[in-house]
């Protein structure tokens, strides 16, 4: 019995949150990795793009809510998501046209593009603060839980109740659908194949008649969808605050690099590696230990390896270790 209780406690506080967080990171890291693979620079505006996409979705959600449109038990934000993606896509294509295209034409060094992305980051951040303000916003509605602790306890007779929040379920399911669709697109469609070809070898791709501007445009569209979905899922699961999105930049970059920059499969693996290590290292294991160990061995402290405030340190340390021992990442990424 105690063993089952321990498993339930473990999934409540470690497995489910880490799965959710990992899916959000994976979606974010996929965007970083795609931009790196096709446009060949590290996009520092990524976190703030997530905030922008989420903001657009929130505004539409509020509008729907005020008109009484909803999805029943599901959050209205899912209905608003396509509109958020459209707004984000328009924004991304516009920044590409106004900012990045020039540097591609003059074949600027990647670092110049990174600088430009800093400027875009400032502007996006400013816009988000300007439109929706720097404070925390709530936009989640619908049913809060898929499985409630009390119902689970009654059903199973266990002391520990399993909790599954709607936002967690939606995050994982959406992430699976999005990733499946993305891989189908990259591996099966003509455009997707030309994107991969462009990423693998730009010169050969150009020689075989692939239009680079078209590839770039599709990349931005896909990235717009990815960042908006990631941003909205993160906002539903935690809460929407522009600055936390900026801070997500570090774990997202860490995920993309750990997996191997430019490798989509790696980005997903990296996201889960980072998420699981962050959650396990900062979780207080006392509750699980109490169930598993005999009474005489029960720990007196919280058995927390690191305080939760050090979660950035965890992604950072993993990043450094991977870079030192496997500089191209777990899956073979590009090294330009």
């Amino acid at each position: 019995m105690d063993f089952l209780n321990a498993i339930v406690a473990l999934s409540n506080f470690v497995l489910i949150p880490a799965m959710t967080y990992g899916s959000q990171l994976a979606l974010g890291a996929l965007g970083v990795t795609l931009i790196y693979g096709i446009l060949r620079f590290s996009n520092f505006a990524h976190g703030d793009s997530m905030a922008f996409g989420a903001m657009a979705t929130i505004l539409v959600t509020w509008w729907f809510q005020s008109m009484g449109i909803n999805l029943g038990p599901l959050p209205t934000a899912l209905l608003a998501l396509p509109f958020g993606i459209l707004a984000m896509a328009a924004m991304m294509l516009a920044t590409d046209r106004v900012v990045y295209r020039f540097y591609r034409r003059v074949k600027a060094k990647p670092i110049v593009l990174v600088m430009a992305s800093l400027g875009v980051m400032f502007i996006m951040n400013g816009l988000v603060r300007f439109i929706i303000g720097p404070g925390e916003q709530r936009f989640a509605d619908g049913a809060r839980f898929i499985i409630k602790a009390r119902d689970f306890k009654e059903w199973s007779g266990l002391k520990e109740g399993l909790v599954l929040k709607t936002s967690q379920g939606i995050t994982v399911i959406t992430a699976v659908i999005v990733v499946a669709a993305l891989f189908w697109f990259l591996n099966r469609t003509r455009t997707g194949k030309s994107m991969r070809a462009f990423s693998d070898n730009e010169d050969l791709a150009l020689l075989s008649g692939i239009n680079p501007e078209r590839v770039v445009m599709y990349t931005w569209l896909i990235v717009a969808a990815l960042v908006t979905i990631a941003g909205v899922l993160y906002g539903l699961d935690k809460s929407f605050k522009p600055f936390t999105y900026f801070q997500l930049l570090l774990p997202i970059f860490a995920s993309a690099i750990v997996g191997g920059l430019g490798n989509p499969l790696g980005a997903i693996a990296g996201g889960f590696v980072i998420a699981f290590s962050e959650v396990t290292v900062t979780y207080a294991w006392k509750k699980v230990a109490v169930y598993l160990l005999p009474e005489s061995l029960e720990p007196s402290s919280l058995v927390q390896l690191l305080s939760t405030d050090y979660k950035f340190a965890v992604s950072f340390v993993i990043l450094i270790v991977v870079l030192l021992f496997k500089p191209t990442g777990l899956f073979k990424g590009q090294s330009v």
Partner: peptide, 28 residues
């Protein structure tokens, strides 16, 4: 010592990380 000698973007990420860690240490 850890990040130089790798690619230039990696130094950027590493410094971004160390800044957050320094701040986390100062705060906690």
């Amino acid at each position: 010592k850890t990040a130089l000698g790798l690619r230039s973007d990696y130094l950027a990420i590493a410094t971004l990380g160390i800044a957050e860690i320094v701040l986390a240490v100062l705060k906690n």
